[in-house]
Protein backbone atom coordinates (compact mmCIF):
# COMPACT_ATOMS: atom_id res chain seq x y z
CA UNK A 1 0.00 0.00 0.00
CA UNK A 2 1.42 3.34 -1.01
CA UNK A 3 2.70 5.55 1.76
CA UNK A 4 2.67 2.90 4.43
CA UNK A 5 5.77 2.46 6.50
CA UNK A 6 7.60 -0.79 6.15
CA UNK A 7 10.24 -0.36 8.82
CA UNK A 8 10.59 1.15 12.25
CA UNK A 9 13.34 3.50 11.19
CA UNK A 10 13.68 5.30 14.44
CA UNK A 11 17.16 5.99 15.66
CA UNK A 12 16.41 7.50 19.03
CA UNK A 13 17.50 6.02 22.32
CA UNK A 14 15.53 2.97 23.38
CA UNK A 15 15.05 0.65 26.30
CA UNK A 16 15.67 -2.80 24.91
CA UNK A 17 14.79 -5.98 26.77
CA UNK A 18 16.85 -8.88 25.56
CA UNK A 19 14.92 -12.15 25.29
CA UNK A 20 15.91 -14.46 28.13
CA UNK A 21 13.45 -17.27 27.56
CA UNK A 22 14.27 -20.36 25.59
CA UNK A 23 12.03 -20.88 22.61
CA UNK A 24 11.75 -24.32 21.15
CA UNK A 25 12.54 -24.46 17.45
CA UNK A 26 10.02 -27.26 17.05
CA UNK A 27 6.39 -26.96 16.09
CA UNK A 28 3.88 -28.83 18.26
CA UNK A 29 3.61 -32.56 17.80
CA UNK A 30 0.55 -33.89 16.12
CA UNK A 31 0.25 -36.53 18.82
CA UNK A 32 1.41 -36.70 22.39
CA UNK A 33 2.97 -39.47 24.43
CA UNK A 34 -0.43 -39.94 26.02
CA UNK A 35 -1.76 -40.98 22.64
CA UNK A 36 0.32 -44.13 23.17
CA UNK A 37 -1.16 -44.92 26.55
CA UNK A 38 -0.41 -48.65 26.51
CA UNK A 39 3.10 -48.06 25.34
CA UNK A 40 3.58 -45.36 27.97
CA UNK A 41 2.62 -47.66 30.78
CA UNK A 42 4.79 -50.44 29.40
CA UNK A 43 7.70 -48.01 29.18
CA UNK A 44 7.07 -46.98 32.73
CA UNK A 45 7.16 -50.50 34.00
CA UNK A 46 10.28 -51.14 32.00
CA UNK A 47 11.98 -48.05 33.38
CA UNK A 48 10.98 -48.82 36.93
CA UNK A 49 12.08 -52.42 36.73
CA UNK A 50 15.43 -51.48 35.25
CA UNK A 51 15.99 -48.87 37.92
CA UNK A 52 15.13 -51.34 40.58
CA UNK A 53 17.64 -53.73 39.07
CA UNK A 54 20.31 -51.06 39.03
CA UNK A 55 19.49 -50.18 42.64
CA UNK A 56 19.93 -53.83 43.62
CA UNK A 57 23.28 -54.02 41.91
CA UNK A 58 24.46 -50.70 43.27
CA UNK A 59 25.64 -52.35 46.48
CA UNK A 60 28.11 -54.49 44.58
CA UNK A 61 31.09 -52.92 42.82
CA UNK A 62 29.93 -51.53 39.52
CA UNK A 63 31.43 -52.70 36.32
CA UNK A 64 32.13 -50.38 33.51
CA UNK A 65 29.86 -50.90 30.52
CA UNK A 66 31.34 -53.22 28.00
CA UNK A 67 30.53 -51.05 25.05
CA UNK A 68 29.56 -47.49 24.55
CA UNK A 69 31.29 -44.30 23.60
CA UNK A 70 34.46 -42.80 25.01
CA UNK A 71 32.35 -40.41 27.02
CA UNK A 72 30.53 -43.30 28.62
CA UNK A 73 33.82 -44.92 29.58
CA UNK A 74 34.96 -41.66 31.03
CA UNK A 75 31.76 -41.17 32.93
CA UNK A 76 31.79 -44.67 34.34
CA UNK A 77 35.41 -44.23 35.45
CA UNK A 78 35.91 -43.87 39.18
CA UNK A 79 39.17 -42.07 39.79
CA UNK A 80 40.79 -41.86 43.18
CA UNK A 81 40.51 -38.09 43.27
CA UNK A 82 36.74 -38.07 43.25
CA UNK A 83 35.16 -35.36 45.36
CA UNK A 84 34.04 -37.55 48.32
CA UNK A 85 37.49 -39.12 48.52
CA UNK A 86 39.14 -35.72 48.54
CA UNK A 87 36.79 -34.43 51.19
CA UNK A 88 37.45 -37.51 53.29
CA UNK A 89 41.19 -37.02 52.93
CA UNK A 90 40.91 -33.37 53.84
CA UNK A 91 38.80 -34.13 56.89
CA UNK A 92 41.34 -36.67 58.04
CA UNK A 93 44.15 -34.23 57.42
CA UNK A 94 42.43 -31.46 59.35
CA UNK A 95 41.69 -33.88 62.15
CA UNK A 96 45.38 -34.82 62.31
CA UNK A 97 46.37 -31.15 62.39
CA UNK A 98 43.96 -30.47 65.21
CA UNK A 99 45.34 -33.38 67.15
CA UNK A 100 48.87 -32.10 66.60
CA UNK A 101 47.86 -28.65 67.81
CA UNK A 102 46.20 -30.03 70.89
CA UNK A 103 49.26 -32.12 71.69
CA UNK A 104 51.50 -29.10 71.16
CA UNK A 105 49.28 -26.97 73.42
CA UNK A 106 49.36 -29.63 76.11
CA UNK A 107 53.14 -29.87 75.85
CA UNK A 108 53.45 -26.09 76.08
CA UNK A 109 51.29 -25.98 79.18
CA UNK A 110 53.28 -28.77 80.79
CA UNK A 111 56.65 -27.23 79.93
CA UNK A 112 55.39 -23.73 80.63
CA UNK A 113 57.35 -22.69 77.60
CA UNK A 114 56.40 -20.76 74.47
CA UNK A 115 53.44 -21.98 72.46
CA UNK A 116 54.61 -23.87 69.38
CA UNK A 117 53.88 -22.17 66.09
CA UNK A 118 50.74 -23.44 64.39
CA UNK A 119 51.33 -21.72 61.08
CA UNK A 120 53.18 -24.60 59.54
CA UNK A 121 50.34 -27.18 59.73
CA UNK A 122 47.80 -24.59 58.57
CA UNK A 123 49.91 -23.75 55.55
CA UNK A 124 50.34 -27.43 54.93
CA UNK A 125 46.57 -27.86 54.98
CA UNK A 126 46.14 -24.96 52.57
CA UNK A 127 48.64 -26.51 50.19
CA UNK A 128 46.82 -29.80 50.46
CA UNK A 129 43.46 -28.18 49.67
CA UNK A 130 44.77 -26.26 46.71
CA UNK A 131 46.53 -29.33 45.44
CA UNK A 132 43.44 -31.46 45.72
CA UNK A 133 41.21 -28.96 43.94
CA UNK A 134 43.98 -28.38 41.44
CA UNK A 135 43.84 -32.04 40.57
CA UNK A 136 40.08 -31.79 40.46
CA UNK A 137 40.00 -28.83 38.11
CA UNK A 138 42.78 -30.13 35.91
CA UNK A 139 40.57 -32.90 34.74
CA UNK A 140 39.31 -32.15 31.28
CA UNK A 141 35.57 -32.60 31.03
CA UNK A 142 34.22 -34.72 28.23
CA UNK A 143 33.29 -32.94 25.09
CA UNK A 144 30.20 -34.46 23.62
CA UNK A 145 30.73 -32.48 20.43
Amino acid sequence: MAGRRTSASNDDAMWVVEPTDFVSPYAPLSDSIFDHEVRLRAAWQLAVASLERSARTSDTPEEAPAGGSEEAKFLSDKPDDSLPAIIQKLQKHIHDIQEEREKADDAAIEDDGPTPAVEAPAQSARRSVSGAFGRLTRRTPPNPA
Partner: peptide, 24 residues
Protein backbone atom coordinates in the same frame (compact mmCIF):
# COMPACT_ATOMS: atom_id res chain seq x y z
CA UNK B 1 1.63 -54.57 30.67
CA UNK B 2 1.54 -56.12 34.06
CA UNK B 3 4.78 -55.73 35.94
CA UNK B 4 6.06 -59.29 35.56
CA UNK B 5 6.20 -58.97 31.81
CA UNK B 6 8.03 -55.69 31.98
CA UNK B 7 10.30 -57.00 34.68
CA UNK B 8 11.17 -59.94 32.52
CA UNK B 9 11.89 -57.67 29.62
CA UNK B 10 13.96 -55.44 31.84
CA UNK B 11 16.57 -58.12 32.31
CA UNK B 12 17.74 -57.26 28.83
CA UNK B 13 17.15 -53.55 29.06
CA UNK B 14 18.98 -51.29 29.13
CA UNK B 15 22.09 -52.83 27.69
CA UNK B 16 25.51 -51.26 28.11
CA UNK B 17 25.35 -49.33 24.87
CA UNK B 18 22.04 -47.81 25.86
CA UNK B 19 23.37 -46.84 29.28
CA UNK B 20 26.24 -45.08 27.56
CA UNK B 21 23.82 -43.18 25.32
CA UNK B 22 21.65 -42.29 28.25
CA UNK B 23 24.60 -40.85 30.13
CA UNK B 24 25.66 -38.91 27.08
Amino acid sequence: VVPPVAAEASTEWPDAAMVAKEKD
